[in-house]
Write a protein that binds this DNA or RNA. Structure first.
Length: 482
RNA sequence: CGCGGGAUAGAGCAGCAGUAGCUCGUCAGGCUCAUAACCUGAAGGUCGUUGGUGCAAAUCCAACUCCCGCAACCA
């Protein structure tokens, strides 16, 4: 099989708060794909990071009374820690305010844009001092900012750089329609196309230094302007690879790669499927090949929000149930494409049903029989099974992670049924040879399940595979919770 | 005419044209190897409403009702 070069990224969240379930979901989805591709012998670069330069970070730091850099680093560390705890196998983690290659790369990208695509324009708008951001007519209620009633809106006028998105309307349309820039799932592709067809307006790509308070990346050759954070943030996907100095990873995983995939949430699909590709078209840099758009996570059917107080810290779930149990829920019970719901009650239910009673119990059943009745370990390596399975390949090639999981769990059900039907435990007395044959076959199939689980539940997969290799019942993989 | 998503057994969801399925719960059996786990069976659905296309519709089309997001710089 020919080795492929595969790039995949999670989006870089701005770090004005602790990581939540949505971030964890995205990390897990991207990680499953990355691990799967490595198992398929592709050469993979999996990128993750934080968007440090957003103005929201500045506001959050100010209200916390901490220097922006400290504030950003503190929260970035929480993201790094969460990824570690979730066994996310990213090859690099870029912090956009820390890595000097990012600043250089973003400025290089700016300079690389066609001169006619960037122009200066006076921008006038109603600025809310409370929110510290511009408001559009639609944002206002009775001419006031709904967040800060009574507070006067200030009419601010300043010069900003704009990007001539309108130049790229038809090109973008063709790219998306032809799937040269593939958007998954189809509904998101339709949304993007309808947005393109409604007409693309140029967008602002800089802010005055006065408003950014000097935080962010300076616009090249203009000390009065800071880059608009999206221009800066989107470029992370290539700056992290070494775009600024044509580094080896940039050559390998961007310029010459077979696939370049961004995993993002539905709220930022426009930036990734329209703004970002347009910027790249202007500079002549290669485009991503796929954008995989996932939904949001609701809690008890409601949007997660601090006001409602229903925000769940992924760390709390991991503390109680472990990383693999959490990965399991995200992979199988949250749709990769639509919004999914999460509550601790539901989590516990599926944990007990599918992990404790399902996979955990099955592993114990089979390996106890094997340990007590087989003289030596089953030669699983001679079985010739590595990872591949047609159904899983097909599901994952379309990013249907939950379908792949359904399939694996159907195999688990098959094995439980087989034990009941073939009754090796009672055959041991009457015809031990037949019983042993059955047990050997069960071990092989358990091994196969372990292999299939590798991208999804890496720790558990290793424990199962190892148990079959040493012919020993594993420790309680998923203790039942009452 | 803003855009999109949802409405399927008591609950939560999958299916998206060809005998209605999964998890939990309920009831009745079986098994006793295993994490009081596992297996089988049963009860329970006019697949939001009304029309249409098809030999055939949760599945395609149209209209309507009710929920939920988004509405250009917000995972």
């Amino acid at each position: 099989m020919k080795e492929k070069k595969f790039f995949i990224s999670s989006s870089i969240p701005y770090v004005n708060a602790e990581p939540h379930l949505g971030h964890a979901q995205e990390f897990i989805e991207a990680d499953i794909i990355a691990r799967y591709r490595r198992l398929m012998d592709d050469t993979v670069f999996f990128l993750s990071g934080t968007d440090d330069n957003a103005q929201k970070n500045v506001q959050a730091a100010e209200s916390a009374g901490i220097p922006v850099a400290d504030y950003v680093n503190k929260h970035a560390k929480e993201f790094i820690d969460l990824e570690k705890r979730l066994n996310i196998s990213n090859d690099y983690f870029i912090q956009t305010s820390v890595d000097p290659r990012h600043r250089d790369g973003a400025q290089k990208l700016w300079r690389a844009c066609k001169p006619e695509d960037i122009y200066k324009k006076s921008y006038k708008g109603m600025y809310c001092l409370g929110c510290e951001e511009f408001k559009t007519e639609a944002d206002l209620v009775n001419g006031e900012c709904p967040e800060h009633p009574g507070k006067k809106l200030e009419e601010v006028e300043e010069e900003n750089y704009f990007f001539k998105l309108s130049n790229y309307q038809s090109k973008l349309k063709n790219l998306v329609e032809s799937d040269e820039l593939q958007i998954i799932p189809q509904t998101r592709k339709n949304e993007v196309l309808s947005f393109i067809n409604s007409g693309l307006e140029d967008f602002s790509i800089s802010r005055s230094v006065a408003r950014t308070k000097g935080w962010g990346i300076p616009v090249p050759d203009d000390e009065t302007q800071t880059m608009y954070v999206w221009f800066d943030a989107l470029s992370n996907y290539i700056t992290a690879l070494g775009y600024s100095d044509d580094g080896a990873d940039y050559e390998k995983f961007w310029k010459e790669s077979n696939e370049r995939v961004h995993v993002i949430g539905k709220g930022i699909s426009r930036f990734h499927t329209i703004y970002w590709p347009a910027m790249l078209l202007s500079t002549g840099v290669r485009l991503p090949s796929k954008v995989f758009v996932h939904g949001y996570i609701t809690v008890g059917g409601q949007k997660m929000s601090k006001t409602i107080g229903n925000v769940i810290d992924p760390n709390v779930v991991i503390d109680e149930y472990g990383a693999d149990a959490f990965r399991y829920y995200m992979a199988r019970h949250i749709s990769p494409f639509d919004d999914g719901d999460f509550t601790m009650e539901k989590f516990k239910e599926v944990y007990n049903a599918n992990l404790a009673n399902g996979l955990g119990n099955l592993s114990a059943r089979i390996m106890k029989m094997a340990q007590d009745n087989l003289d030596e370990p089953v030669k699983v390596d001679n079985y010739g099974y590595t990872f591949q399975d047609g159904y899983i390949d097909e599901s994952l090639s379309e990013y249907k992670i939950n379908m792949a999981m359904e399939y694996i769990w159907s195999k688990i059900g098959d094995l439980d049924r087989e034990i009941t039907e073939k009754r090796p435990f009672s055959l041991l007395k009457e015809s031990p040879e037949t019983a042993k044959e059955i047990i050997v076959n069960l071990v092989l199939n358990l091994y196969r399940v372990g292999c299939m689980l590798q991208p999804f539940l890496p720790e558990t997969a290793d424990l199962i595979i190892n148990a079959t290799r040493i012919n020993k019942k594993p420790e309680n993989l998923f203790p039942r919770k009452d």
